[in-house]
Design a protein around this nucleic acid. Sequence first.
DNA 1: AATATTAGAGACGATCGGTCTAATAAACAT
DNA 2: ATGTTTATTAGACCGATCGTCTCTAATATT
Lengths: 218, 218
Amino acid sequence: MLESAPVLRKRGRPRKDPSLPGSARSQLLRAGVAILTEKGFSAVGIEEILSAASVPKGSFYHYFDSKDAFGLALIDAYADYFARKLDRWFEASDRPPLRRLADFVADAREGMARHDFRRGCLVGNLGQEMGVLPERFRQRISAVFADWEARTAKCLRAAQAAGQIPQGADCDRLAAFFWIGWEGAVLRAKLERNADALDAFAEGFFKLLGTRPGTNDR
Amino acid sequence: MLESAPVLRKRGRPRKDPSLPGSARSQLLRAGVAILTEKGFSAVGIEEILSAASVPKGSFYHYFDSKDAFGLALIDAYADYFARKLDRWFEASDRPPLRRLADFVADAREGMARHDFRRGCLVGNLGQEMGVLPERFRQRISAVFADWEARTAKCLRAAQAAGQIPQGADCDRLAAFFWIGWEGAVLRAKLERNADALDAFAEGFFKLLGTRPGTNDR
DNA sequence: AATATTAGAGACGATCGGTCTAATAAACAT
DNA sequence: ATGTTTATTAGACCGATCGTCTCTAATATT
């Protein structure tokens, strides 16, 4: 048995690997992220995505079972993209940990500015639409936030080890605080079409990082 | 000219007072707030509101020119309702100012819990949908946030006068920070269907209020 | 009573959404 | 080549949506 692994070719045209880029499928995902970060899920029809991706309508249901399935695939694609982005900043071991966080914030800020503050966070957008989205969306989105928080908490613990924030600080709780507020800031920046909210939240958050724990309990 | 003020009655059926409750118009507004805080604007059809309010379609277009006009009226109604709520808590002169803020937070938390964390903030929801809403919405919503921030800043200044927060604190900026993050917390609470985000943000915010200014600039 | 105006009721149509079927094109084994 | 399997697409379908339109009811003045 030597010819084991190298497949066992059947007749007919072989199945395509859906993960490879360049195809119509990834075009749809790209266009989907761009449009949904701006307009949300329910308000956008698939035809708008199709024409943006230059993919005919008939193809859509070849790649995705439904609009919902497309939405879930979009969440996965976006979560992947964002996780890589977070890693890029948070694992930059040549800079102090707190600086890495500030760099991420600056990068996100610049990203929003580049699109005139019209696009927000896909995951935040979909979260807002939970009332009309199927339950599976909730689980996925919730998991994505948990992942982002974990990565952020790790970075904060590195800052703690480096003496940049107090020893007693609860890094998990601070990371949760960050993402709760940051999503609010992104939403607000989209509304006002400027970076004020991002700056205001970042300033407050970094100030909070300097507080000694145990102080000021109501 | 003594019969001046008492109107100048025209013939025909007189106009109904639109502000009085129980009427079809206010029923529509009530149902609209309830449904839109849960599901957003674009995802909800008029008919869902009509059946919830037990008002026929004909009446809707009698009172409102379009769905958009209805949306703007909803913002006004909600802003009024919320401004009264804020006043009730923030002007409670029998309690220390910072406690008033905490009371508001607790009340909002309870309000969300009462609806199983399915309803959020109307203004926050619509803000998220800016990409598909007409420009006038943006101006209105932005103004509403400015109003809430002003009321909150006033309460914080009272806290400052009472010595509850440091003299050097920038109350306007803190109020802005509060609403940026609080809307994020509401959004997240809706997603997770629990109060964790509300609690986490409130805790962090009150901790931040205790910080001395000038400390920890990056 | 006659008339004027507002309010309530719901059928209707044009449009647009997502879904699905059936036809065509492409890639492979024989 | 030829048959077989899959990829891709065109376009029909059906239901929902918003807003219009007409019709009736209610309530006032003249």
